[in-house]
């Protein structure tokens, strides 16, 4: 298997973030992690999943399941301000037809929730 480097370093970061939380809560292990990946980022959800399966080895997240919710891109049209769901960053505004807009959602990767084994 070829590991995409970019997602691998993000997967390592993800493990670090959830392990910190698990330690804070005195958890024995991490059961499930829920992450929201915006489509207006450079992260490919499938690659993040694959990378996570390697990055988690030997950590509190070793048996954790990663659930990725893909967040669509929402743009605010540069021209008329209309907010619209877009397929990509060069999509046309559905009202005025001009290309592109400010990313109002889908531009981030958020660690939403963890499920921890505590007892």
């Amino acid at each position: 298997m070829i590991l995409p480097l970019h997602e691998f370093s993000l997967a390592m970061q993800l493990v670090k973030v959830v392990e910190r939380k698990a330690n804070e809560m005195g958890a024995k292990s991490i059961i499930r992690i829920k992450v929201r990946v915006g489509l207006a980022t450079t992260i490919v959800p499938e690659f993040l999943s694959e990378a996570f399966n390697v990055a988690k080895l030997g950590t509190l997240a070793e048996d954790a399941e990663l659930e990725i919710e893909v967040e669509p891109i929402k743009l605010s049209c540069w021209n008329c301000g209309n907010e619209f769901e877009a397929e990509g960053l060069f999509s046309k505004c559905c009202l005025c037809g001009s290309v592109g807009g400010k990313v109002v959602s889908g531009g981030e990767v958020i660690v939403e929730q963890v499920e921890l084994k505590v007892g």
């Binding site: 993000l10 970061q13 993800l14 670090k16 973030v17 959830v18 939380k21 809560m25 958890a27 059961i31 992450v35 981030e108 990767v109 958020i110 660690v111 939403e112 929730q113 963890v114 499920e115 921890l116 084994k117 505590v118 007892g119």
Partner: peptide, 22 residues
């Protein structure tokens, strides 16, 4: 909460993955 395998807990985080870098 508990199930057959013991206690478990759901924790809301809502943290940007790259927050530490930022």
């Amino acid at each position: 909460m508990a199930n057959a395998e013991g206690q478990w807990k759901q924790v809301l985080m809502l943290e940007r993955l790259l927050q530490a870098n930022e």
